[in-house]
Write a protein that binds this DNA or RNA. Structure first.
Lengths: 232, 232
DNA sequence: AACACTTGTCACATACCTGTAACATCTCAC
DNA sequence: GTGAGATGTTACAGGTATGTGACAAGTGTT
């Protein structure tokens, strides 16, 4: 779900280990980038902008810890979550590792499951919540924080897609959208669904809103739909 | 209901606007305090301890945003809900406004109805009792001091995790939380457990609460869970 | 060591949501 | 009015999210 498609940069000088990690992460739905030294890693960070880094402690040339510090110093990369990888028995370095700015720390050998779990946890913490405002129109209230829709103080029961649809409409009032625009905006660009599917969800949303508010969603014949407080 | 008699502090330098807002709110059953600058506002906050603040963006002297930041910084007032008022076309300030700690944001001109709706929404979800205070909802009582849960004067037997979960929910009512957020908030940030584990503990908690109260914990499909006294 | 209790995970059951098709109804040009 | 295209409406099969019970491992107690 929310973690799907996140890009993880794996930095380790041993190819088999990189490979193992990459396989584990890809099975979990992540996209992987790989680098075997700090120079390559840095190019990839700048170039590909991954969502997080798995960084081996021991690296030829510049050490992992050095690299982590550098990333944290630079404005553009300071927020990049880093998980440090280290061999067993280097416990005493832990503190140093975390002080270098790493967000977590994992000891080899580790199970793929543990790796994925930690990675999720770190990503979760690093993703700041979006702006959450309450929107009100003619007694119809959409409250993103409570993830709820109310019509004249009565809860309206809408499914996930209808909720997103309504949220989009309420944040983009008075303007007409074609079915394909709605598919892009509400469903997300990379899905393939019939345009008529939009009609069905519009219908479901109207039904859920009930007589009192269904006329807010207006049909623009030959074009699509529009959310408007003005009668058509 | 719970909103009756709440005291709202209106901070705006234009008297007519303050008056208009005050009338609207009083009709809706709120009690109003008024201030035309930050100095007066601050005195009133300290002195009268209002339940929330309607704060104009543009103020002579110290700006509204500055004031909001100050309030959020101070321990005693950090929890005070704030709704920012701003003139149309200052959209670009929106993010800044919310970052300053405002809980919502409303653009002039607005209808009294809209204002009241938002105010309700903000108040509804922003009344977190102190840690040591017992919380009561529909005959369900959580007593942090005795570390105990009672349903209609009968002790409810819950495990440690379910207790923390319930406590979190009761101090953060009405708001929807994802499984990730619950893991962060209830389990603590540094644990690595499956998201579905949350479901299991929700189940255990519901079971422990019994028919009389289990509907307080609502499923928000596709998102997570919510503790709410209102039917879904 | 046996026990009671808690916890995280799994496997299966169930409920709900989704996209599509098929048919009904509407609108407009002719 | 008629027909073609657009939209409304319903039903349904399959997929996905959540509910639920069981279990093994861990912990602390007796």
């Amino acid at each position: 779900m929310t973690n799907a498609g996140k890009r993880v940069l794996i930095v380790d000088d041993e190819a088999p280990i990189r490979e193992m990690i990459a396989v584990a992460l890809e099975m979990a739905g992540y996209e992987c980038l790989e680098a075997e030294n700090v120079q390559d890693a840095h190019s990839l960070v700048v170039d590909q902008r991954p969502d997080m880094i798995l960084l081996d402690w021991m690296l030829p040339g510049v050490s992992g810890i050095e690299f982590a510090r550098r990333l944290k110093r630079e404005e553009a990369t300071a927020e990049l979550p880093i998980i440090m990888l280290t061999a067993k028995g280097e416990e005493e370095n832990k503190v140093q590792g975390l002080e270098s700015g790493a967000d977590d720390y994992i000891t080899k050998p580790f199970s793929p499951r543990e790796l994925v779990a930690r990675l999720k946890a770190v990503l979760r913490r690093a993703t700041p919540p979006g702006v959450e405002e309450t929107i009100e129109v003619n007694g119809l209230i959409l409250d993103p924080v409570c993830h709820r829709v109310m019509a004249h103080d009565k809860a309206v029961d809408v499914g996930p897609t209808e909720y997103r649809l309504l949220q989009f409409f309420m944040t983009h009032q008075e303007r007409a959208y074609s079915r394909s625009q709605l598919l892009d905006q509400v469903w997300g660009g990379n899905v393939y669904v019939e345009e008529r599917t939009v009609d069905v969800h519009i219908r479901r949303l109207r039904k859920a809103l009930g007589q009192s508010h269904e006329q807010l969603i207006q049909t623009v014949r030959g074009t699509g739909y529009r959310f408007s407080t003005k009668a058509s």
